[in-house]
Design a binder for these strands. Sequence first.
DNA 1: TTCCGACAGTGGGGTCGCAAT
DNA 2: ATTGCGACCCCACTATCGGAA
Length: 513
Amino acid sequence: MTLLATIVETSSRVAATSARLAKVRELAACLRQFQPDEIVVGVAYLSGDTPQGKFGIGYAVLKSATAESAGEAVLTVLDVDRRLTEIASIRGAGSTTRRAEALKELFSRATEAEQHFLIRLLIGELRQGALAGVMVDAIAAAAQLSVDKVRRAAMYAKSLGAVAHAALVEGESALANFQLELLSPVAPMLAQTAADVGEALEQLGEDAVFEWKMDGARIQVHKSGDSVHIYTRSLNDVTAAVPEIAATVRELPAREVILDGEAIAFTAAGRPHPFQITMRRFGRKLDVAKLQAELPMRAYFFDCLRLGDESLADRPTRDRYEALARAVPAELIIPRLVTASEQEASAFYDAAIAAGHEGIMAKSLSAPYEAGNRGASWLKIKRAHTLDLVVLAAEWGHGRRTGKLSNLHLGALDPATGEYVMLGKTFKGLTDAMLEWQTKEFLARETHRDDWTVYVRPELVVEIAFSDLQASPRYPGGLALRLARVKRYRDDKRLQDADTMESVRKIFEAQSG
DNA sequence: TTCCGACAGTGGGGTCGCAAT
DNA sequence: ATTGCGACCCCACTATCGGAA
């Protein structure tokens, strides 16, 4: 019987080193201690996950459930799992209170270190510097199997725990049983960023193919006979939210197919809706039909992972395209161009932007589909706006940014009122040196502070890149920056040279068409 | 010896459903 | 009815380690 304390101690040793091989050694040593029936749960906990998935428990409930800690470590891994299963099953009126009570009871049997671990686990912030990627290495080390074989199995398995169980209990041959299966979604392949078409061509060369990039929701569609399921990027089943896409797929001639694509809503005039609007369709359970009538969705597909009996994931992009063209009518395939010409690719990019989309993808024609991987064979090229904004405040960072002012509050002057209007926050794009510098500069300009935020005199101008302006119910100006990141501080610019709300509104109007 | 791929960490805004108030 | 919380949609970027070149 493995105690929770064993996992907690391993986690703290993993957190204590920054060396990846040392983390792998610690994790592997712990895996070897597990009884067979403890592997699935133990592997989940050590990679920052729980077999139960969602609990309806967040920071607020956890805080209300804090209890006097136990003096001695008595909880076993399986004790905790049983209790969490009970908590996850609590539903209906009074459920929040009853979940908190059950959690409190669990915490009362945990030591202080165990409570701390459970809180981080449940909140999804283990912060031990090792999640699924490092765990794959640890499973391979513990079972003395090749990392490639374990990684491949993990791509197609429902959980890492299942892979670990197979590897440790049954051995290498069992790993081969994890395959691309119908109605069992795989993590979608992700892309890196390229600055422009030229950079993408430089990386991909003659092998490049370009596709429009639509700003909707990534979908993975599985069809097996009459059974059709649609999954999101994080593999949630959203079939019920987008019945028209399910219907479209059901009508495809192929009996068995797995497709990768994007779902997006269009205006009556045929322009794509902003992301914000498209997203209203997801997560919607009530009045789906009504919203469907107002916001019809379309699916555009760009990849085919399986057609008929044949898994295509390991085949090159050009073969998967060929299968896609057989499986799906042309009007459901995302616009695409094979070219090695920078002029042609640039014109293609301009056309995508002119049609209201967010940019283009560049892909290698010879690359396989690397499920879950953010590989160099897919590149995204997106348009970005930039503005010179003013820092109004900054929040203290967490984790490795503890003690540094990190998250910037950004604003622009409204000439009509003479006041600064906040437009959003960002902590992205900052190097350690910038964090160091800005902490000093902000503290020198501090006007007042509260628990997490230091407010400053509006004097520092910073160049901010962002993807869009969104209508915002939260911010006073009614606009918020989407995907904002810091480019650089503009110490060459005076406050009067910063952009004002006038230019901000101009950008919003232009993008609203 | 240097370069680069993979990984983790750092949170952002918006929307919906549900329980509590 | 309204509010607060949790879950999920989307995502950019930097630092670090360690294997590849």
